[in-house]
Protein backbone atom coordinates (compact mmCIF):
# COMPACT_ATOMS: atom_id res chain seq x y z
CA UNK A 1 0.00 0.00 0.00
CA UNK A 2 1.47 3.35 -1.05
CA UNK A 3 1.11 5.98 1.65
CA UNK A 4 -0.79 9.14 0.77
CA UNK A 5 1.92 11.43 -0.62
CA UNK A 6 1.40 14.78 1.18
CA UNK A 7 0.80 13.08 4.51
CA UNK A 8 3.94 10.99 4.04
CA UNK A 9 6.02 13.94 2.90
CA UNK A 10 4.98 16.02 5.90
CA UNK A 11 5.42 13.32 8.52
CA UNK A 12 8.41 13.40 10.87
CA UNK A 13 8.09 9.68 11.47
CA UNK A 14 7.32 8.47 7.93
CA UNK A 15 8.56 4.89 7.56
CA UNK A 16 11.27 4.44 4.98
CA UNK A 17 12.59 0.97 5.75
CA UNK A 18 10.26 -2.00 5.58
CA UNK A 19 10.36 -4.18 8.72
CA UNK A 20 12.99 -6.92 8.56
CA UNK A 21 11.55 -10.40 8.96
CA UNK A 22 13.24 -12.65 11.51
CA UNK A 23 15.29 -15.53 10.13
CA UNK A 24 17.80 -18.07 11.37
CA UNK A 25 21.31 -16.68 11.11
CA UNK A 26 23.46 -19.77 11.68
CA UNK A 27 23.98 -20.55 8.00
CA UNK A 28 23.90 -17.06 6.50
CA UNK A 29 24.78 -14.51 9.18
CA UNK A 30 24.84 -11.50 6.86
CA UNK A 31 22.79 -10.44 3.85
CA UNK A 32 22.51 -7.03 2.24
CA UNK A 33 21.30 -5.33 -0.91
CA UNK A 34 24.09 -2.84 -1.52
CA UNK A 35 26.62 -1.66 -4.10
CA UNK A 36 24.39 -2.97 -6.89
CA UNK A 37 24.58 -6.52 -5.55
CA UNK A 38 22.85 -8.98 -3.33
CA UNK A 39 25.81 -9.89 -1.17
CA UNK A 40 26.53 -11.56 2.09
CA UNK A 41 28.47 -14.00 4.19
CA UNK A 42 27.77 -17.72 4.40
CA UNK A 43 29.23 -19.88 7.16
CA UNK A 44 31.12 -22.96 5.99
CA UNK A 45 29.35 -26.19 6.78
CA UNK A 46 32.56 -28.00 7.65
CA UNK A 47 34.93 -25.47 9.23
CA UNK A 48 33.59 -23.09 11.89
CA UNK A 49 36.49 -20.69 11.33
CA UNK A 50 35.78 -20.34 7.61
CA UNK A 51 33.19 -18.19 5.89
CA UNK A 52 32.33 -17.62 2.25
CA UNK A 53 31.58 -14.25 0.69
CA UNK A 54 28.89 -14.68 -1.94
CA UNK A 55 27.19 -12.23 -4.24
CA UNK A 56 24.85 -11.81 -7.20
CA UNK A 57 25.05 -8.70 -9.34
CA UNK A 58 21.88 -6.76 -10.16
CA UNK A 59 21.06 -6.75 -13.87
CA UNK A 60 23.69 -9.20 -15.18
CA UNK A 61 23.00 -11.73 -12.37
CA UNK A 62 26.68 -12.69 -12.48
CA UNK A 63 27.63 -14.44 -9.28
CA UNK A 64 30.74 -14.83 -7.20
CA UNK A 65 31.78 -16.95 -4.24
CA UNK A 66 35.08 -17.20 -2.40
CA UNK A 67 36.36 -17.53 1.14
CA UNK A 68 37.08 -14.37 3.10
CA UNK A 69 40.75 -14.98 2.23
CA UNK A 70 39.83 -14.81 -1.46
CA UNK A 71 40.20 -18.53 -2.18
CA UNK A 72 37.68 -19.38 -4.88
CA UNK A 73 34.80 -21.59 -3.82
CA UNK A 74 35.10 -24.96 -5.56
CA UNK A 75 31.36 -25.29 -5.93
CA UNK A 76 30.79 -22.15 -7.99
CA UNK A 77 31.69 -22.73 -11.61
CA UNK A 78 30.64 -22.00 -15.14
CA UNK A 79 27.96 -24.68 -14.87
CA UNK A 80 26.07 -22.91 -12.10
CA UNK A 81 25.94 -21.43 -8.65
CA UNK A 82 27.25 -23.13 -5.52
CA UNK A 83 25.23 -23.96 -2.41
CA UNK A 84 26.52 -20.77 -0.75
CA UNK A 85 25.06 -18.47 -3.41
CA UNK A 86 21.83 -20.48 -3.31
CA UNK A 87 21.64 -20.14 0.47
CA UNK A 88 22.32 -16.42 0.19
CA UNK A 89 19.38 -15.96 -2.19
CA UNK A 90 17.07 -18.08 -0.06
CA UNK A 91 17.86 -16.13 3.11
CA UNK A 92 17.62 -12.75 1.36
CA UNK A 93 14.09 -13.70 0.30
CA UNK A 94 13.23 -14.54 3.92
CA UNK A 95 14.71 -11.28 5.22
CA UNK A 96 13.47 -8.78 2.63
CA UNK A 97 10.65 -10.62 0.86
CA UNK A 98 10.74 -12.08 -2.65
CA UNK A 99 9.57 -9.08 -4.67
CA UNK A 100 11.95 -6.52 -3.13
CA UNK A 101 14.90 -8.84 -3.82
CA UNK A 102 13.69 -9.47 -7.39
CA UNK A 103 13.24 -5.72 -7.95
CA UNK A 104 16.75 -4.97 -6.68
CA UNK A 105 18.33 -7.67 -8.85
CA UNK A 106 16.12 -6.66 -11.79
CA UNK A 107 14.62 -10.10 -12.20
CA UNK A 108 11.25 -10.43 -13.97
CA UNK A 109 9.00 -12.70 -11.92
CA UNK A 110 5.78 -14.17 -13.27
CA UNK A 111 2.81 -12.04 -12.17
CA UNK A 112 0.67 -15.16 -11.82
CA UNK A 113 0.84 -17.73 -9.08
CA UNK A 114 3.06 -17.58 -6.04
CA UNK A 115 6.67 -17.60 -7.19
CA UNK A 116 9.35 -18.37 -4.58
CA UNK A 117 13.12 -18.33 -4.22
CA UNK A 118 13.32 -21.22 -6.69
CA UNK A 119 11.63 -19.20 -9.47
CA UNK A 120 13.90 -16.30 -8.63
CA UNK A 121 17.02 -18.44 -9.06
CA UNK A 122 15.71 -20.00 -12.26
CA UNK A 123 15.06 -16.58 -13.80
CA UNK A 124 18.71 -15.59 -13.36
CA UNK A 125 21.25 -16.73 -15.93
CA UNK A 126 24.47 -14.94 -15.05
CA UNK A 127 27.88 -16.55 -15.12
CA UNK A 128 30.73 -16.82 -12.65
CA UNK A 129 32.46 -13.45 -12.35
CA UNK A 130 34.66 -13.27 -9.27
CA UNK A 131 34.62 -10.10 -7.21
CA UNK A 132 36.82 -9.08 -4.28
CA UNK A 133 35.65 -10.69 -1.06
CA UNK A 134 37.42 -8.15 1.13
CA UNK A 135 34.92 -5.30 0.80
CA UNK A 136 31.89 -7.38 1.72
CA UNK A 137 33.76 -9.17 4.48
CA UNK A 138 34.80 -5.88 6.06
CA UNK A 139 31.21 -4.67 5.84
CA UNK A 140 30.20 -7.83 7.70
CA UNK A 141 32.78 -7.13 10.41
CA UNK A 142 31.49 -3.56 10.68
CA UNK A 143 27.95 -4.96 10.96
CA UNK A 144 29.09 -7.24 13.82
CA UNK A 145 30.92 -4.40 15.55
CA UNK A 146 27.58 -2.86 16.59
CA UNK A 147 27.20 -5.73 19.04
CA UNK A 148 30.48 -4.71 20.66
CA UNK A 149 29.40 -1.13 21.35
CA UNK A 150 29.04 -0.25 25.01
CA UNK A 151 25.46 0.21 26.21
CA UNK A 152 24.39 3.81 26.72
CA UNK A 153 22.31 5.53 29.39
CA UNK A 154 22.39 9.02 27.84
CA UNK A 155 19.07 10.56 26.92
CA UNK A 156 18.60 10.29 23.14
CA UNK A 157 16.00 12.76 21.95
CA UNK A 158 16.91 11.67 18.41
CA UNK A 159 15.25 8.31 18.86
CA UNK A 160 11.82 9.95 18.96
CA UNK A 161 12.22 9.90 15.18
CA UNK A 162 12.68 6.12 15.33
CA UNK A 163 9.75 4.46 17.11
CA UNK A 164 9.83 0.66 17.03
CA UNK A 165 7.61 -0.51 14.21
CA UNK A 166 4.76 -2.91 14.79
CA UNK A 167 3.54 -5.71 12.60
CA UNK A 168 0.57 -3.74 11.31
CA UNK A 169 2.74 -0.93 9.92
Amino acid sequence: MQPEAPEYEQSSTARVLPPVQPRKLAKVPFVELADGRLQGVVSSGSDIARVYVSSVEAGSHDYSCSTNNNRPCGGAGSYGTCKHVDALITEAVVQYGLRPVARYLRVELPEEGEPGAWELRRAMNGTLNRTEAAVVFSRFLHHLSYLELPVSTSPMVELNWFPAAGVTA
Binding site: E9, V16, L17, E158
Partner: peptide, 29 residues
Amino acid sequence: GLAVLLDGLAAELTAGSPLSTMAPLPSRR
Protein backbone atom coordinates in the same frame (compact mmCIF):
# COMPACT_ATOMS: atom_id res chain seq x y z
CA GLY B 1 22.87 10.38 19.98
CA LEU B 2 24.42 12.10 16.97
CA ALA B 3 26.06 8.87 15.79
CA VAL B 4 22.78 6.99 16.04
CA LEU B 5 20.92 9.77 14.23
CA LEU B 6 23.33 9.97 11.29
CA ASP B 7 23.55 6.19 11.04
CA GLY B 8 19.77 6.04 10.79
CA LEU B 9 19.66 8.74 8.14
CA ALA B 10 22.37 7.06 6.05
CA ALA B 11 20.53 3.72 6.18
CA GLU B 12 17.33 5.36 4.94
CA LEU B 13 19.13 7.16 2.13
CA THR B 14 20.59 3.81 1.05
CA ALA B 15 17.23 2.06 1.27
CA GLY B 16 15.51 4.76 -0.76
CA SER B 17 17.93 4.59 -3.66
CA PRO B 18 17.70 5.46 -6.47
CA LEU B 19 16.64 8.69 -4.78
CA SER B 20 16.20 10.49 -8.08
CA THR B 21 12.94 8.57 -8.56
CA MET B 22 11.92 7.65 -5.00
CA ALA B 23 8.23 8.42 -4.49
CA PRO B 24 6.96 9.66 -2.20
CA LEU B 25 10.08 11.11 -0.56
CA PRO B 26 9.96 11.75 3.22
CA SER B 27 11.01 15.39 2.91
CA ARG B 28 10.05 16.63 6.38
CA ARG B 29 11.53 13.60 8.10
